[in-house]
Simulated scan of single mutants.
Amino acid sequence: MSDQLIQFVRDHFDTKDFIPLHAPVFPGREKEYVADTIESTFVSSVGAYVDRFEQDMAGYTGSPKAVATVNGTAALHIALKLAGVESGDLVITQPLTFVATCNAIAYCNAEPVFVDVDRNTLGLSANALEAWLTENTSLDSEGVCRTRTDNKVVRACVPMHTFGHPADLDGLISVTRRWNIALIEDAAESLGSFYKGKHTGTFGTLGTLSFNGNKIMTTGGGGMILTDEALASRAKHLTTTAKKPHTYEYIHDELGYNYRLPNLNAALGCAQLEQLETFIENKRALAAAYEDLFSGTKLEFVKEPEGCRSNYWLNAVICEDKLQRNELLKTTNKQGVMTRPIWALMNHLAMYQSCRRGNLSNAEWLEARVVNLPSSVCVPASVREGLNNC
């Protein structure tokens, strides 16, 4: 199957050169908008494109407000703080995620708790979450969720929409409400993905996005907090070094963070967002072609959950076992077609291996079998002239 996959990828991207996993494309007004910021001299965190990018992203996602940040990790760090996460608290998340999810929790001096994922979504399992909470916690007289062994507060739950596929949000909302735990969506990979008609990142108290260079659209770096008006106002204050408005004085009223997105990056984001639906259409067509390719083979293509529209940020297949996974990775990469395994589970990393966790059998099963495939947006030849993409 490796040979057929390699040929399929080379035919789709129409190149004999190295094919990356996910490269950015810039076929729209990116150069025009970035040049405009340079001409204006407002290239840092103050500028019209920052405001426009926030407004446009709120409009696209249906979130009441959106606050731009320097990257997705910064967005998640501030979201956790706004949800009340304090030093010593516990924050439940999935072990099958990128390390930034756990790092943001650690920045709050909180401890990640690892709960299993569902195989059909690759995202946090509501059933596993309920099981861990029932076994390990109870609500105190004030309705605060605490561990029975050491009275630690379970403050928040952070599911991640893996590869752009929405997690079981109905189930997770039900469990977190029952246990009085804040739901914060790590939607870094799922811009353009919808769960039952509503955009991911808008179901919890807060949601966060990422615009890293490998995401479905990019600002070079960058992130976004999606939330209500009151929390957005707090987010804007904290991410701007907690500086109070004044004509000339420097007044900072609490510990703040230099997390604002520069205008230069926001300009790039505005141009990319204008093309997002075209990008998604392109990527969903590629996903359908991959699904046809693997139909009837021993490789199982990862499809969007029922009732959802996934952006198919990274396409993936599930191999029969780790041996088949390793052979696929070795053969494709040797031929210049970039494929990657799923991340090492977070509880396998040195800094998180002592964290609390439940039964992680699904996550362990997936870790041994999942391979990501080239998933870049392929710009049509008529538009591609002069671009070094696809």
Results as ranks from 00 to 15, higher is better:
Thr41Asp: 09
Ala156Glu: 12
Leu264Gly: 12
Asn311Gln: 13
Ala187Trp: 09
Leu209Cys: 04
Gln7Ile: 15
Phe18Cys: 06
Tyr259Arg: 03
Asn389Arg: 00
Thr61Lys: 15
Gly201Pro: 12
Ser210Tyr: 09
Asp292Ser: 13
Leu299Pro: 07
Asn212Asp: 15
Thr101Glu: 05
Ala126Glu: 11
Gly84Ile: 02
Phe42Tyr: 07
Gly62Asp: 03
Val117Glu: 08
Thr61Gln: 09
Asp51Arg: 00
Arg356Cys: 01
Met1Ala: 13
Glu274Lys: 01
Leu329Val: 15
Leu268Asp: 01
Ser375Lys: 02
Asn120Leu: 11
Leu21Gln: 12
Asp89Trp: 09
Thr339Ile: 12
Leu293Asn: 04
Pro24His: 10
Gly72Trp: 00
Ile225Val: 13
Ser125Arg: 09
Lys81Glu: 13
Pro112Ala: 12
His252Trp: 03
Met224Ile: 03
Val113Gly: 12
Lys16Phe: 05
Ala156Leu: 09
Glu142Val: 07
Asn151Thr: 08
Ser174Met: 10
Val115Leu: 12
Lys283Leu: 13
Gly28Cys: 08
Arg119Gln: 11
Val371Tyr: 12
Arg148Gln: 05
Leu293Ala: 11
Asp150Phe: 04
Asn212Ala: 15
Trp179Asp: 05
Ser361Ala: 10
Trp313Leu: 13
Asn120Tyr: 15
Ser193Trp: 09
Leu323Phe: 15
Asn103Gln: 14
Val99Gln: 09
Asn282Glu: 06
Gly256Leu: 02
Ala48Met: 01
Asn389His: 00
Arg155Ser: 08
Gly201Met: 12
Ile216Trp: 08
Asn333Trp: 10
Arg52Asn: 05
Phe211Tyr: 13
Glu86Thr: 05
Ser2Tyr: 08
Val70Ala: 02
Val25Gln: 11
Ala83Gln: 08
Lys298Gly: 14
Arg357Thr: 08
Ser233His: 08
Gly201Lys: 01
Met1Val: 14
Asn315Ile: 07
Val99Arg: 07
Ile181Cys: 05
Asp321Asn: 15
Cys355Ser: 14
Asp321Ile: 13
Arg155Cys: 11
Thr134Gly: 07
Lys198Val: 15
Pro166His: 07
His12Asp: 04
Asp11Ala: 05
Glu111Gly: 03
Leu129Ile: 02
Met57Gly: 01
His246Pro: 06
Ile105Pro: 03
